[in-house]
Amino acid sequence: MKKLFSTFFIALFVFISAQDNESKETANRFFYELTFKPKKDSAKLEKVMTVLDIVKDRSIYRDYTVIGQDSIIKVQVEAMQKSGVFKDLSKSIKMPKFSEKIIKSYPEMKVEYIERIASGFTPLGIAYYETIKFDWKISTDKEKIGSYNAQKATTEFGGRKWTAWFSTDVPFQDGPYKFSGLPGLIVKIEDADKNYSWVLQGNKKVQDWQELSYTEKISGMNLKVNELSREKFEKTFNDFKKDPFATVRPMMTQDVMSKSIPGMDGTVGDMMKKQEKMYKDFFNANDNPIELVKAIKK
Rank of each mutant, 00 (worst) to 15 (best):
D20H: 10
R29Y: 07
L182G: 00
K235W: 07
Q151P: 03
Y61L: 14
P244S: 03
G263S: 12
V51E: 13
Y128S: 02
G159A: 04
D70L: 09
V111K: 00
V248R: 05
Q69F: 10
E33W: 04
D239G: 15
L292F: 15
V14L: 04
N288W: 08
N149P: 02
D265C: 03
P123S: 14
G125V: 00
T253V: 06
T26N: 15
E25M: 06
S42H: 11
E216P: 00
E78C: 01
L228R: 04
S258V: 07
Q151H: 08
S260W: 00
Y214D: 03
D41G: 02
D63A: 14
T155M: 04
F30L: 15
W209K: 10
F30V: 09
I10E: 10
T35G: 04
V14A: 10
I102D: 02
Y196D: 11
N226R: 07
V55C: 14
S90Y: 05
V51K: 01
T26F: 05
K232N: 13
R230I: 15
V48A: 12
N195L: 05
K224Q: 08
I290D: 15
M1W: 11
L212G: 00
K87S: 06
G202W: 13
R58T: 09
D63N: 03
K39G: 02
Y32M: 04
Q81H: 12
F282E: 08
T131M: 08
Y113N: 08
N149Q: 15
L292S: 10
F9G: 11
I218V: 05
N284L: 00
D239K: 14
K242C: 09
K87C: 14
E291A: 11
I102L: 01
K74R: 05
G266H: 02
P171M: 08
K259M: 05
V51D: 07
V187Y: 01
W198G: 10
L89H: 08
S42Y: 07
A150P: 13
V111L: 09
